[in-house]
Each structure stands twice: as structure tokens, then as C-alpha cells.
Design a protein around this nucleic acid. Structure first.
Lengths: 122, 122
DNA sequence: GTAACTGTTAAAGTTCACTTTAAGGCAAGC
DNA sequence: GCTTGCCTTAAAGTGAACTTTAACAGTTAC
């Protein structure tokens, strides 16, 4: 079992943000007899998953939806699947966008380098 | 020469946003004798470039910086180069992040599919 | 026993990139 | 002559995802 700050360090999400996620219904940590949050390995995995989804721009609302569906049980698996597939499509589209701009920048940068190099010879 | 709404259609940026970019000093369209904005091909290219940079999350402040440097003239080429290289690095990093999550999702999705398929047989 | 960490609620603030509204006025095409 | 599209300034609003503040209190480690 880990404390909120241990988890924060482990997954690189601030304690504040972790509490915020809880308020949003995205996580539901256990509590000890004093009401202090306790995080087990499953929850840490879930937080790492959240991290990856957020890094790839999944909106908080979708995260909420996913967490809610999970809590509702097994029969929501198909819906959760669709949510993930949907997000994957967005990711793949964004990869293409980024690649295209990356390549365009290759050209631009090459031109600039040539130009700057010329100048430095005078 | 193109009007603002023609340009808006061409580059898929709303007239409002184009005016906003002008206010921010990112573009500087010509004006006709009535003060109506006129866009030439060079400006349209610049707007398309802006579009690509925004789609890849370059902040408006960097766009401003770039436009300002450009206006300052040739001697700022090195600085503009650095700006673009910097942005390219971010793009490449983001591509890696997206790819990693894409692959993780492949695994998750496969597991869900197996699960959902099982259920549908009962 | 005191500093460090934990907790609470509720609200306000921040940043970013627009987007919208208001309220008016000029100019061109049918 | 009226609709459509263009112009202006200035300000307010939006949505997303935190982040911060306030103000207080309990618990644990050294």
C-alpha cells in the first residue's frame, strides 16, 4: 500500500491532481482507519494507464466514462472497447498529422541551414 | 487577391480567427482603398504553414515570435531556425509518446475483443 | 514537540486559444 | 434599396484541466 505522495512520485502526477481525479470519479482509492488514502498496485496501474491516455489527449470526460463503465461491470466491456478503439483512431490520425509536419519541417530546416551557412561565410 | 472569407475556406481557418491572428501580430494582410483585407498567395502559404504548426501544438506565442523575427529581417534566420528545430524535437517526442500508447492500446483492445467475443457465444 | 504529511470543503484563479456579442457603419451586387 | 459581406473596438464568455488558496485539523516520523 502506498500513500498519495508515494504514488505521486511513482506515476508523476501531483497529489492535488490525484485528489482531483478522485473527485471526478476517475479513481476510488481505499482509506485506512484515519481516512488516509491507500493505493494498491492495481490502482497504480490504473493511474499509469490514465497517464498514458491523458498524454495522448484523451479528455477527462472519456476517462470518467471509462471508469464508470468499468465500475458497472462486465456487461459494459463492449462499450469500453469502443471507447478505446475510438481513442486509438484519434491517436493514429494525430501521428499522421505530426509526421507530415515533421517532414515539412525537415525541408524548411534544411533550407534555413543552407541559408545560415552561407551567411556565416561572409 | 483573396478576401478573408475566400481565404478562410481555402485554409480552413475562420475569418474571426484570421482577424485574431492579425491582432496578435502573426499576419499582416494588405488592405484595399476601403480598408478591406486582401490576401495574396504568399500570405495564404504562410497561413497554411501556421495551420500545420498549430495542428502540432506550437503555441501562439512561438508563432508570434517567428513572425516578428521574420519581419526583423535576414539576420534573424538563425533564431528562426532554432525555433523550428525546437518545435520539430517536440513533434518527434510526441510521435514517440503516441506510438507507445498506440501499441499499448493494441494489447488492451485485443484482450477486450477476446473477452467480448467469448461473451457473445453464451 | 514540531515539522512534515495527511485530510476536508469550497471557491477562486490560471492558461490557452479562441469564440461570441454588441453596436455601429461602409460598400458592392442584384 | 436591401441583403450580404466587409470593417471597427472592446469586452465578455467558453471549455479544458488543472492549480491555488484559505483555513483548519488530525497523525506520524525523528
Amino acid at each position: 500500500m502506498y500513500s498519495i505522495s508515494e504514488v505521486a512520485a511513482k506515476v508523476n502526477i501531483k497529489p492535488h491532481t490525484i485528489r482531483f481525479y478522485e473527485k471526478e470519479g476517475i479513481i476510488e482509492p481505499l482509506r485506512d482507519e484515519n481516512g488516509v488514502r491507500e493505493f494498491d498496485d492495481a490502482l497504480i496501474k490504473w493511474l499509469m494507464f490514465i497517464k498514458k491516455l491523458r498524454e495522448t489527449q484523451m479528455p477527462i470526460t472519456d476517462l470518467k466514462k471509462y471508469a464508470l463503465l468499468f465500475k458497472e461491470g462486465d456487461h459494459t466491456a463492449r462499450e469500453r472497447l469502443m471507447l478505446l478503439e475510438n481513442h486509438q483512431k484519434k491517436i493514429q490520425h494525430q501521428i499522421e498529422t505530426l509526421k507530415a509536419t515533421d517532414e515539412m519541417l525537415d525541408g524548411k530546416i534544411a533550407a534555413y541551414k543552407k541559408h545560415v551557412l552561407n551567411k556565416s561565410h561572409r
